[in-house]
Design a protein around this nucleic acid. Sequence first.
RNA 1: GGGCGCUUAGCUCAGCUGGUUCAGAGCAUCUCGUUUACACCGAGGGGGUCGGGGGUUCGAAUCCCUCAGCGCCCA
Length: 873
Amino acid sequence: MSLSTKYDPSAVEEKWYQYWMDHGFFHSEPNPDKEPYTIVIPPPNVTGVLHMGHMLNNTIQDVLIRKARMEGKEACWVPGTDHASIATEAKVVAMLKEKGINKKDLTREEFLKHAWEWTEKYGGIILEQLKKLGASCDWDRTRFTMEESLSESVIDVFIDLHNKGLIYRGVRMVNWDPQGKTALSDDEVIHKEVQSKLYYVNYKIEGEDTFVTIATTRPETILGDSAICINPNDERYAHLKGKRALVPLINRSIPIIEDEYVSVEFGTGCLKVTPAHDINDYELGLKHNLESIDILNDDGTLNEAAQMFVGEDRFVVRKKIAKELDAIGQLNKIEDYTNSVGFSERTDAVIEPKLSTQWFLKMEDITKPALENVMNDEIQLIPPKFKNTYRHWMENVHDWCISRQLWWGHQIPAFYLPNGSYVVAKTKEEALAKAQEKDSSITIDQLTQDEDVLDTWFSSWLWPMSVFDGLKNPDNEDIKYYYPTNDLVTAPEILFFWVARMIIAGYEYRGEKPFKNVYLTGIVRDKQRRKMSKSLGNSPDPLDLIKQYGADGVRTGMLFSSPAGNDLLFDEKLCEQGRNFSNKIWNAFRLVQGWEVDKNLDGSHNATAIAWFKSRFNQTLAEVEDHFTKFRISDALMSIYKLIWDDYCAWYLEMIKPEFGQPIDAKTLEQTIIFNEQLMKLIHPFMPFLSEELWHELRERDEKDCLIVADWPKAEAIDEQLLSDAALAFEVVTNVRNIRNTKQISPKEALELKIKSGDFAKFENYQFIIQKLANVSSVAQVTDSVEGALTFVVKADEFFIPVSGSIDVEKEKEELQKELEYTKGFLKSVDKKLSNERFVNNAPEQVVAMEQKKKADAEAKIKVLEESLANLG
RNA sequence: GGGCGCUUAGCUCAGCUGGUUCAGAGCAUCUCGUUUACACCGAGGGGGUCGGGGGUUCGAAUCCCUCAGCGCCCA
C-alpha cells in the first residue's frame, strides 16, 4: 500500500480548486431547462479580512450551493464586497496620516483617489481568502457596491424615492464623533461604564431669593439649557409650577416645565433640559416646544452660543465651569458616580449627541409588504423565533437616516441653489435644468452638490437586485431568471440593518421578495462565550486553521456544532474532529483500494452486508434530506458522519473485509466502490476537496466527470425488516464483545455461540456476519440450555458461549438477577398503564398497541431469564 | 423600564403539533487493546429527578402559572 496513512489536505486543495475554476464549474448562466438556485453573498467589507464569522457563514452557503448544483439546479452564488463607508474612510484617513497627509488638506477628488487605490489594493483580499475555504462562488459575477453600475442604481433609487416624496431632510440628534467629525450609527458607538462625577448645581428661581438644585454629569451643557423639568406628581417641587429659573453664570431665563418623564428618585428629582445636547432632552424639547441651543462646534469646542469659554474644549470647560459655579456659590456638592458613556468605535472619542440636518427615508408605508410577507411566511426566517423580533422592529420602525458626513460612498445627488433650496438630479446638468425652472438666472457654477454620502446600507439593500442589474435594466435575462433568490445566510445582528431593508427594497422595486429563506447563523464565540474580536485577540486566524486541519476539517469543525440562530462556541477541538474525520475517510478508501480481485471467488456471503448497507444508506439519505429542508445543517452533517464512520467503516467494511492479504470477489468490490462513491457524493457539500480527490482515485474519470457536478443520490426503498434483523444481529455481536471485555477474553480467541431461539431462522442470514465480527467459530442452534457457558439474553432469545475454564456461577446469577429485576420493574410500569381504564380508553390505539407489545416482550424476556437462572441452579 | 429568548449527561447541543426516535447525539471521561485501513485508531462501559415549585391531563422535558439564574434587542 503506497498511500500515506495520513491524509494530506495541502496536497489536494489547491489542485482541485484550480481545476474547478479552470473548468468553469462555478459559473452559471440562465438556463431555462434547469431550476435556478441562487444565493447572493452578504458582501463583506472591503476593509475586512476573513474572520471566523465569515468562515461559518460562507461554509453554510457553500454547502447549500454545492448540494443544489449536484441536484441539477442551475446554481449561482454571487460574490462581492461592500464599500463600507465609515470603516474604509477611517482606514484611508489613518493610512494617509501615517504618510503625513491630513484629510483636511485634500480635496474630495484627491481623497477619493487615495481611497480607490486603497480599495484596489486590499479590497479583494477577503474574496481570495474565501477561495481557500473552498467557496464555489461564480467569480465571473463578482460585484462591488461602488462599481459604476451599482452606484448608478443607488443614485437612481434615491432620486426615485425622493420623487415619490419618501425622502426628506430633517433635523435629528446623531452620535457625533468630534474627532472624526462625522455622525456615527448607533452600532459604531461603544458604551462603557465610566467613573465620573455628579455635579449638584443651584439654579436661582427668577424673582425670588430661592434655589432649586439639579444634578448633572455634564455641567458644561448648562450653557445650552432651555428649561427645567419637574415631575407634576412631585410635591417637593409643587411650588415651582409656572415659575421660571435663571441659568447660572449667564442668567438666561428659562421656563420650569412639568413632565412625568422625570424620575422622582434620580438625583434631586429635578431635571435640566438641554435639547441640543441630549437625546431625551431633545424629545422633551419637541414635546414642550423648547428652544434648542447648540453650544458646540463640530470639533467639540464651545461656540458663540455658549456665551462663555468660546473656543475651549468641552472637557476643559467642564472643569472650569465647576470652579466658577463654586466661586459664585451655586455648586452645591460633587458626588462620585458611575455612568455609561458612548465612545467612537473608530477614534475612541467620547460621543457627543448633536443636532444636525440629515436626509431621511420615510418608513411607515414602504415597510408594509415587508412586514406582511415575513409574517405570512412568504419569506421564512430560520429559526422562526426571529419573526417576533422582526415584527417588533417593523411595527416600531423609525425613519431611516441615510446621510453620512463622509466622502467615501455614494454622494447624495442633491444640489443646492444659492438661496439654500435644492434640487435632486442625477447629474449637475440635469440639476441645472431643474434649478433654472425655479430661477432662470442660475448658472451651473452656482450649484453645489450635497457634501454627504449615503449610508452604506442604502446601497446594500439593493444587493439582490443590483448584482443582476435588475434596477437599471429590470427586464434583463439574469434578473428574470435568478430573482427572487433562494436562500440568504447572514447574522441576526444585521436582521434590521440589512435583511429587512432588502425585503423592503425588493417589494418596492420588483414587487417581489428578494429571497425565500433567511438562515440566521449564530455568533462565533470563544470557549468562554466571549465574542471573537480583534481587540480581544481571541480569534484564531482562519487561514492558519486551514493550514493545520485542512479546509475540509475546518468546514466540518465549524458545522459540527452550529444550529441555526444559536451561537457557536468555537473550539479548535472541533476542527481536530474534522481533520480526524478526513483521515478516517481517507483510510477507508486506502483499505478498499488495496484489495486485489480474484474473479473466481464467489462473494455471495456478502449479499446480506450489501443489502443492509444499501438500506442503511437510503435511510440516512432520507434523514439528511429532511434535515436540509429544515436547514439543520449540523444535523445533516452528523447523520452523514455517523453513516460513514459507524455504518460504513465500523460495520460494513468489517463485514466484507477479506482476511489479511487475501483477495476479494469482483462483485463485492464493485459494490463497495459504488458505496464509496455514493458516500463521497453525500459528504461533498461539506468536504469538497477530499471527496473530489477520492472521486478521482476511486475510478478513472473523464476530464469533466467531477464530483462537484455529479448527481446527488436519490433515495431508494428501505427494507425495514432487513434493518431490524440486522440491528438484532449487531446487538448479538456487541453482547459477545462485551462478554470478552468483562471476562478478559482476547479478541483473537475464537468462541462458539449457541442460540436458543423460537425463531432461529432470522439469524441464518447473519450467521456469517456474526461469526466474523464477534470472532465466533460457529453459530449453532440449541434447544436446551448449555451447561457451563456464559450467557446473555437479547429480546426473548438466549445465547450461550461455552468456555473452557470454570465460570463464576454466582456472578453470572447476579447479573441475570439484576436484569430480571429491571425487566420486572419495567413490566410493572407497563401493566400499570394498561390496567388504567382511562388510559386504554383515551390513548390512541397505536399507543395502546405499543404498550401491549412492550408487555409481551417483557414477559417473554422474563421467562427466558428465569429459565436461565434455574439452569444455573 | 419595555420586548424576546434560554436553562436537558462534565462540555456543546437535538428533542416539531403532549404517548417507542423519550430521556438522545457528538465531544470529553473510564476500562481493555501496539489485530494486518486508520492510535488523527479499535472494542466496551459509566454518566441526567430534563433549573426549583405548583397546575392541566389517563399521561408532561414537551402545555399553563410562578420563582430563580442567564442572554439578547430596544429605551
